[in-house]
Each structure stands twice: as structure tokens, then as C-alpha cells.
Amino acid sequence: MKGDKARDDKLLPIPEIDKVIHEPARLTIMAYLFVVESADFLFLQRQTGLTWGNLSSHISKLERAGYIEVTKEFLDKKPHTALQLTNRGRTAFQEYRRSMKQIFNKLPKP
């Protein structure tokens, strides 16, 4: 139909969104790890307000995607888990930001 074709011409191709990062809780975790060198579980839990179980689950997903590196070490003879973004994670986050900016910049004005 002529109306449908006119609408289709206005639709812009939306780039592939990284669904691993796009989830709000994981996006918040990635954002915090992006602005620091490394952080531990407790710091992320305090900053994001997520429950321990929720945080652990999201971090596992990010680790499986290769975006986060989890290092277990000892700090003052106490076990300590440090989390930091991998190079791949930093690149993926920056790409995600670019994609989202592109989407909203290219939306037609109402």
C-alpha cells in the first residue's frame, strides 16, 4: 500500500544492540567498571543497589561474554575478588554507547 511504503522509507536501519550490555543492571555494572580501574563485589553492590544474588548472576553473564575479568586474590590475608573490564569489554561498552547515540540522533523529528 502506498501509505505503508511511505512509512517504510522513513524507517532507519537500527544497528545491532549488544543485548548483553543492554540489560539495565548489566549496563550499570559496566558503566561503573568503565569509570574505575577495578572494584570488588561489595563496592559494586553498594553502588548499584542490586542484591548479592542478582549481582552475582549478572557478573557471571558478563564474564561469560568476555567483558569482565574476575580475579580472586588475598588482601591482608582475606580473600578478595577484584572485577575489571577486559579490553574487549571496554571496546564493547564504547561501541554500545556509540550505537545508542546513533539511534537517538538519527530518529526522525516528530
Binding site: V35, V36, E37, S38, A39, D40, F41, L42, F43, L44, Q45, R46, L75, D76, H80, A82
Partner: peptide, 16 residues
């Protein structure tokens, strides 16, 4: 910092 702060809000390495 180690005794008071870190056990309460965790450990973070801020950009230097």
C-alpha cells in the same frame, strides 16, 4: 581506610 572504609563500601581502584 582499610579498617573503616573498605569493609563497609568495598575496595575500588580509582583512575590515577
Amino acid at each position: 581506610k582499610r579498617i573503616i572504609t573498605v569493609p563497609r563500601i568495598g575496595f575500588v581502584k580509582l583512575p590515577q
